[in-house]
């Protein structure tokens, strides 16, 4: 492992529609107990979900008090005026906080100042990476479908802190159509916020009953949870030192601790995976993208 640079763990933005109290309690626990350096906050999937949720100031305060760096994440699909208002507000907050852009509308407003770029901005090559770095991006989360060869090539030239997701369902697609509403035969406008019933997303199976994907409102996620605990040393060796854990309705403090212990060499791989498997019982892990295969695949043991 590369000892010249200390690796950082981050908690990605909560992708699911949990209620305000649950979300607040979740982040308080993260603030107090989870060994992560950065916490991304904000709604990235659906602007409608923000209605009536006011936990953000308290949560930010608690996280910062606990020594964690807060990064505010923007929406990944900006369509209407409501989406644009939220985007503009975030751009204003970019003076006080590090803000992560997930759509070009926010990128355009953050350029020229220090900001972060999220995994929903397409960076597949060195020239794109340079474009965002030149615009002031100091922290860049790469798209999940990049194979190791691309990660290595990007890490080789990066001047920003690169991050990859190492745990949780993979965000695969976004739509203007709400699949939760559709699955419940509701219209998007009268969705009744029904995505709140599935705190980890709603499983999508094939007609033959094979696990396939998961839906989360406008978003489509992987069925499997990515788990790159085995690939951490290789990632560090190629110069990637920031690892994103995507929140799920499991003991995320424990998940964060396992990854921290892995980074510090306190537990071995088998032990780490045993604990992770027990924590997310009945869910398959995958690491296919990293190995240049279908994302759903699990390569190696």
């Amino acid at each position: 492992m590369d000892v010249t640079q200390k690796s950082g763990l981050s908690l990605g933005p909560l992708l699911f529609n949990w209620d305000g109290d649950k979300t607040r309690d979740f982040y308080f626990a993260i603030a107090d107990e989870a060994p992560v350096n950065h916490v991304y906050l904000g709604e990235v999937v659906c602007a409608k979900r923000l209605a009536g949720k006011d936990y953000l100031p308290e949560v930010i305060e608690r996280l910062e008090r606990a020594g964690k760096t807060v990064i505010l994440s923007g929406l990944m699909l900006v369509l209407d005026d409501r989406d644009m208002t939220i985007t503009n507000d975030l751009a204003t907050m970019g003076r006080d906080y590090l803000v992560e852009a997930n759509d070009m509308s926010l990128v355009s407003q953050l350029r020229g100042q220090n900001h972060a770029i999220g995994p929903f901005i397409n960076i597949y090559n060195e020239a794109s990476l340079k474009y965002y770095e030149d615009g002031g991006a100091s922290r860049i989360s790469l798209p999940p479908e990049l194979p190791a060869a691309s990660l290595r090539a990007l890490a080789h030239v990066a001047t920003s802190a690169l991050e990859v997701q190492v745990f949780g369902r993979l965000p695969l697609a976004i739509s203007a159509r709400c699949y939760h509403a559709r699955a419940h035969k509701l219209h998007k406008d009268g969705c009744q916020y029904i995505c709140d019933r599935d705190p980890d997303g709603r499983a999508v199976d094939t007609m033959d009953g094979q696990p396939f994907l998961a839906i989360n409102g406008l978003q489509t996620l992987s069925h499997s949870y990515i788990n790159l605990s085995a690939e951490l040393p290789a990632l560090q060796e190629m110069g990637i030192h920031n690892f994103r854990l995507s929140p799920h309705d499991v003991d995320m403090v424990k998940v964060c601790t396992i990854f921290r212990d892995r980074l510090e060499g306190k537990i071995d791989l088998a032990e780490a995976n045993d604990i992770l498997e027990a924590e997310v019982f009945a869910i398959e892990f995958s690491n296919g993208y990293y190995h240049g295969e279908a994302g759903r695949m699990q390569i190696g043991t």
């Binding site: 597949y124 798209p143 296919g288 993208y289 994302g295």
Partner: peptide, 21 residues
């Protein structure tokens, strides 16, 4: 395409081949 184009990795998740790459 029901999904936002250029931001969809469904195909590569299942087959390993994506529109973007």
């Amino acid at each position: 395409c029901p999904m936002a184009e250029g931001r969809c990795s469904l195909s590569s998740y299942i087959t390993g081949k994506s529109p973007n790459m």
